[in-house]
Design a protein around this nucleic acid. Structure first.
Lengths: 221, 221
DNA sequence: AAAGGTCTGTTGTATTTACAACGAAAGCAG
DNA sequence: CTGCTTTCGTTGTAAATACAACAGACCTTT
C-alpha cells in the first residue's frame, strides 16, 4: 500500500494532502488493494458498491451490455482516476454497468462511510478529503451537464456551434484551441467524423468561423 | 426564513433532519433569502457562485445563449430543488449558463464553505448534511451518465433500445412502465417524437418488444 | 529522399431523421 | 352524452446523416 502513496498524492481525491498524512489516512479509511488479470471483471452489472475506487495500475473499461447482447464501451479509466463515486448512494439500486480490466490492473478501495463520517480521532485532513470528493464529483457533474447540452442539439451543426460557443466563453476569447483532434471531437459530440468535417467546412464558407488544425476563431455575422 | 422550514424538511439537502434542527442549522450555514421578479436573472453567464441554492417558491430556467445569440433552455427548476451544486468548485471557471426566474421566485442561499467545513460547535446533523449533498450530486451524476449513454447512441432505434434495456435491468423484469409519455421520452432522448413513435412501431412489428401506453415488454429474439 | 502512417477534407449514395399534417383514441369538463 | 383537448401513431417529403472511399497534407522513420 505504501508504494502507492506517491500516486495517490497526485490524485484529485488526495489533492493537498502530504504523503505522510496519506499513509495515516489509509488506515483510517480502511483502504484495501485488489488486483485483476487482463479480461477479469472488477464489477458486474447488478452489484452493490460500498466503496470509492482509485485505479493504481493498468486500464479499465466501463462498459454495458444491453438486453439483446450488444456491447458498448462508455468510458476508459486510467491510473490515478477515481471511479464508482456515482454508485455509493444507499437505496439507489445496483450498478448498471460492467467494469472490466483490459490490462493487468491494481485497484484501491476506500470505505465510503469512513470517508463521509468524520472519524473520532478527527484527522486534520478529513475535511480536506471530503472537500476533494465533493469538488471532484461537482466538477464531473458540470462536465456532464455541459456535454449533454451539446449532445442534445439535434444537428451536427448545432452541436458544433454550441460546443465552440462554450469554448469561446470559457477562454474569454473568440480565438482558442481545443484539446481534441477531429475524430476525438466527433466522438465527444457523438457524430460522424466526416459529416462533422463537412459541416465545419460549410461553417467556414459561410463566414461563421475559421480554423487551422485545433485553432478555432468564431466570427461575428 | 422560519416559514420555509417545512419545505426544507422535504428537500434532499435536509433529508433526515427535523424542523427544529433545520432552524438552528440555517444560522450555522449563514442562509440568505432572495426574491426575484418574473423575468429577472438570478445569475448570469460568467459569474462566480459561492453558494448552494434551493428554490423555495416559483420556477427557474437554466438557459444558455450561444455566441450568435440563439437561446436554449437546459433545465427547469421547481420548488424544493437544489441547484448550483456543480459550480461551487474553486478555480473551476465561471458559470456557463444563465438562471432566469420565469415566475416570481424565492431562492435560499447556503454558504458552501460552511457546509463543507465541520463547524466548531459540531452540530450533530452536520455530518448528515454532508452525506445528503454527496448523495444528491452522486445521484445526479449517475443519472447524467446514464442519460449520456443513451444519447450517445447514433440512431433513434439504438437510443430507444439502450434506454429500455436499462429500465428492464433496473426493474429486474422484461416488463415495466416508464415515467414518460411519448413527447417526454422523445425530449429525454433528444429525438423527434414522431420518428420515435415510428421506430417503436417497427420494433413491435419485428417482435423485439410490446407496449401499451407506458407499459413496455422486451422480447427475446 | 523515400516509404509508411495518420489526420483531415471531400464526395456520392443509401439510409435515417425532421417536420408538418392528419385522424383515431383517450381523457376531461360541462 | 357532447364537445374540447391531449396524446399517439402514421404518412409523405425535404433535409440531414452515416458510411465508404479516396486524395492531399503532414508526420515520423529509415
Amino acid at each position: 500500500m505504501k508504494k502507492y502513496a506517491a500516486l495517490l498524492k497526485r490524485t484529485k481525491l488526495f489533492s493537498g494532502v502530504g504523503e505522510n498524512d496519506i499513509l495515516s489516512m489509509l488506515h483510517c479509511l480502511n483502504a484495501q488493494v485488489r488486483e485483476y488479470n487482463k479480461g477479469e471483471y472488477a464489477f458486474r452489472q447488478g452489484e452493490y458498491i460500498r466503496s470509492l475506487m482509485i485505479l493504481a495500475v493498468g486500464r479499465l473499461h466501463i462498459q454495458k451490455e444491453d438486453y439483446w447482447g450488444n456491447l458498448n464501451i462508455l468510458n476508459e479509466i486510467r491510473p490515478g482516476e477515481m471511479f464508482g463515486e456515482a454508485y455509493i448512494v444507499p437505496n439507489s439500486g445496483t450498478l448498471m454497468n460492467d467494469v472490466v480490466a483490459i490490462e493487468e490492473s491494481v485497484v484501491l478501495f476506500f470505505d465510503i462511510d469512513r470517508i463521509l463520517t468524520v472519524c473520532p480521532s478527527a484527522c486534520p485532513f478529513h475535511t480536506q478529503l471530503i472537500k476533494n470528493i465533493f469538488y471532484t464529483i461537482s466538477d464531473k457533474n458540470k462536465s456532464l451537464v455541459q456535454k449533454i447540452s451539446y449532445m442534445s442539439q439535434r444537428s451536427t451543426r448545432e452541436k458544433l456551434l454550441s460546443y465552440l460557443s462554450d469554448e469561446a466563453k470559457r477562454h474569454n476569447s473568440n480565438s482558442f484551441s481545443i484539446p481534441f483532434n477531429r475524430q476525438q471531437l466527433a466522438d465527444f459530440l457523438s457524430v460522424d467524423r466526416s459529416a462533422m468535417s463537412n459541416e465545419l467546412s460549410k461553417l467556414r464558407n459561410e463566414g461563421m468561423l475559421d480554423f487551422h488544425k485545433n485553432e478555432f476563431t468564431l466570427r461575428e455575422l
